[in-house]
């Protein structure tokens, strides 16, 4: 794959799947500075992964895989130790900040959901996020490297937990 091809694919992914990256970031980081840091990492890894993408899985599944992989091993607060962020990366962080600002304007329902997802263990948060996005069990299993049955078991627990956390005890 030539560099031009890689660039074209990256730009197409950003156009078509930016939402996935934003959702992953908002599901794993709540503070604006953490979001900036995670977003920077989430942008870099899809770019690096392009030569390995052979089209065996859907693009969206691949982006989820790479973004969640980044988010899972990302460590909150580690940004404090990074002293080498370039000026340009800080400019991207401004973009991330605007993402955080937008969150204030979104409906309470979605914000509350993000907040509850962030309370879940990381694996459960990933499953919940993909399930809400309508990703098939098979694809969730592929992204996380677990069995489809386990996805089903986990999801029933997660749905119940979300129900309880969101106050679903009244009727």
């Amino acid at each position: 794959m030539t560099v031009d091809d890689q660039e074209a694919v990256f730009q197409q992914w950003i156009r078509n799947h930016l939402g996935i990256m934003v959702k992953v970031v908002r599901s794993f980081a709540d503070v604006s500075a953490d979001r900036e840091d995670l977003l920077q990492n989430v942008f870099v890894n899809p770019w690096s992964s392009i030569p390995s993408f052979r089209g065996d899985s859907k693009e969206s599944t691949w982006i989820y895989r790479v973004s969640l992989q980044t988010a899972m091993v990302w460590r909150r607060g580690e940004r404090v130790r990074k002293k080498h962020h370039s000026k340009h990366l800080n400019e991207i962080a401004v973009v991330a900040q605007s993402s955080a600002d937008v969150s204030c304007q979104t409906s309470e329902l979605i914000e509350q959901l993000y907040s509850e997802i962030r309370q879940l263990p990381k694996i459960d948060a990933s499953i919940a996020l993909m399930h809400l996005d309508g990703i098939a069990y098979r694809d969730i299993a592929e992204v996380l490297g677990i069995s489809e049955n386990y996805v089903g078991v986990k999801l029933s627990r997660i749905r119940k937990e979300l129900n309880e956390r969101l106050g679903g005890t009244k009727r």
Binding site: E7, F10, Q11, I14, R15, L18, G19, V22, K23, R26, F43, V44, W47, S86, H88, L89, E91, I92, V95, S98, S99, D101, V102, S103, Q105, T106, I110
Partner: peptide, 18 residues
């Protein structure tokens, strides 16, 4: 979910490579 997040993909590409 993206809200008003507008990204200049050319600028982003350059930043990612950098």
């Amino acid at each position: 979910h993206e809200g008003q997040l507008n990204i200049d993909s050319d600028a982003l590409l350059e930043e990612v490579r950098r």
